[in-house]
Design a protein around this nucleic acid. Sequence first.
DNA 1: AAACACTAGAAAACCGTTTTCGTGTGGATA
DNA 2: TATCCACACGAAAACGGTTTTCTAGTGTTT
Lengths: 346, 346
Amino acid sequence: MSKKVTIRDIARELDVSISTVSKALRNMKEIGPETTQKIQAFAKLMNYKPNSIAISLKNRKTKNIGVIIPEIVHHFFSTVVKGVEELAEERGYNVIVCLSDESFSKEVVNMELLANGSIDGFIVAVAKETMKVKDYHHFYEVIDQGMPLVMFDRVVENVLCDKVVVDDLMGAYYAVNHLLETGCRRIAILTTVDYINVGKMRTDGYLKALAENDIPVVEELILKIEDIDNCEEEIQKLFENQTFDAVFSVNELFAVLGMRNAIRQGRKIPEDISFIAFTDSILSKSVTPALSTVTQHAVQIGRIAAQMLINRLDDEISSDGFSTQIVKTSIIERETTKSTKISTFK
Amino acid sequence: MSKKVTIRDIARELDVSISTVSKALRNMKEIGPETTQKIQAFAKLMNYKPNSIAISLKNRKTKNIGVIIPEIVHHFFSTVVKGVEELAEERGYNVIVCLSDESFSKEVVNMELLANGSIDGFIVAVAKETMKVKDYHHFYEVIDQGMPLVMFDRVVENVLCDKVVVDDLMGAYYAVNHLLETGCRRIAILTTVDYINVGKMRTDGYLKALAENDIPVVEELILKIEDIDNCEEEIQKLFENQTFDAVFSVNELFAVLGMRNAIRQGRKIPEDISFIAFTDSILSKSVTPALSTVTQHAVQIGRIAAQMLINRLDDEISSDGFSTQIVKTSIIERETTKSTKISTFK
DNA sequence: AAACACTAGAAAACCGTTTTCGTGTGGATA
DNA sequence: TATCCACACGAAAACGGTTTTCTAGTGTTT
């Protein structure tokens, strides 16, 4: 086991001073070419790598960015992380991922842990519990210490920082409009409880689309699911007790579970009943029939968030003027919605 | 914006030495009770948090563990990370996640980056490309520097380190046996090319099960998929050109895509054709009919890997005696395989 | 020959904390 | 009263680098 070689080791071996080594490694003209040559060659030979801890301590910069997400086994969040990772790598930053597990206390602990020198800035999607208890002191503290913070998707209105959000309302609006355009009239919605920001926004988009098309809102067709583990029963009940010709779902899972009910009832998709859902992952692509979706460009969101953070870090921009980027969604038509063209031709 | 307060600030304010502050904060009996009292109270007031970088520098420990996985938008890998995170948190460690993107060079770069002081040890699933080019120098270097390394799932035989692997061969064996027991005789396999360790192992398990039951191996029923992006066509061709009454797949995706072909051909699942696949994520649970799977206990794998690493880190065990933990799989029977009971009753 | 410019390298400061090794005060002991 | 020992605290080194300042030596210019 060969220990890590330090600048000091090189200096000793080559019988020069450590400052000479330091300068030579950074190609300073102050050091003669052949000395520089020799030192660099030896350093490479010894497989020397500067200790990043020492450098971090000296420059008070870690070149690490901390990402805190509620869940990692989650297509949207992991895809955002991928985007963050991509851009961070391009700009020479590392990514440290921590999970809040949707818990307020874990979010606080993780932030405090990372804030003490491990990272230069945060990218966060706020935990459900935090949104519920509305306690944002950990965000304020971090900002107060001069550490940049970027929120994405699950954002808090009152916290002053850069934000990246999905255009959930309009995404839902267009999705429901698409159902309307293809001839659907009684549209059920599978959504979440209102304290989940994105669920609320998507529900509002659904309502807006109905309103603009003079379709009456039927309360019985609005299913707000609290507990994701028991969603299957709730969805089944909806299918048993109500009739409708389309389903708009705020996520893939609810939609696919809905499709199961439709299939078992012997209904044809999309002829008898159409489906469209937020989130575009393997699930949508691989189920049969393939699910039409509203894609949120998660990689893009990650990249933008990382961009905002690193710009602030590198340019040392003063803290005034925070911006909120809104990322538009797009609809991917697959097999669970009728073609707009065909319905026009009819 | 209030700057971070250091131990030095406290010393200056209270007009004592920095060593006194350091000791008082750590409750050393060397310091008088009322001084300790005063210093701790003031530190709390100032919201003092020790700088972890400095501590890392001092004790040459970061309390961080680095996880390198090929993909994050991947159910198995992200679930393993969740397991690692869980256990790391219990033991007071942070997790730094880096992605190799299945690329050899990114794997090397990321390891070098993290190895320079950012972390105390590694948990790695080897990238496809690395397995292909068989260049493992970065693993040897890290081990040589005395940094513990734990490999999981995608492991390299020759690298001496702790390992956690799925019992892929037996998992596949039992899965195929299950198909056999429920009356299937012509069983197709959807697998990957042989340089992917787990694909190879699962194929071997398939072969073993057939051999032990005196079922002839039909080469045409073995589909080795290289490029995951074009797998749909390849699978379709198999369904068009061959007949079989069951499919064993090394992952969920291939199976679900296979099911699509069966459904379109109007075949009944599982009566006409059965399906069973490795990996148990939302996909299996939510497709219709729900897919029977071989679950790999990914959280468990993550926990074990983290356990092995942290034990070595905390106990400072000498580097001899590496172990390989084999995690058994289990079969989850859902709707794509016939019930064993029923076939017995028949 | 004196003044000057340049190059190379030695030495020290610095980052925030822990740790080792004093040092001075006071009370107890001889 | 002189010696010893706790006790409470402080000075300084260490961790591993970077950076700055200072010194010494060489060669060129006038």
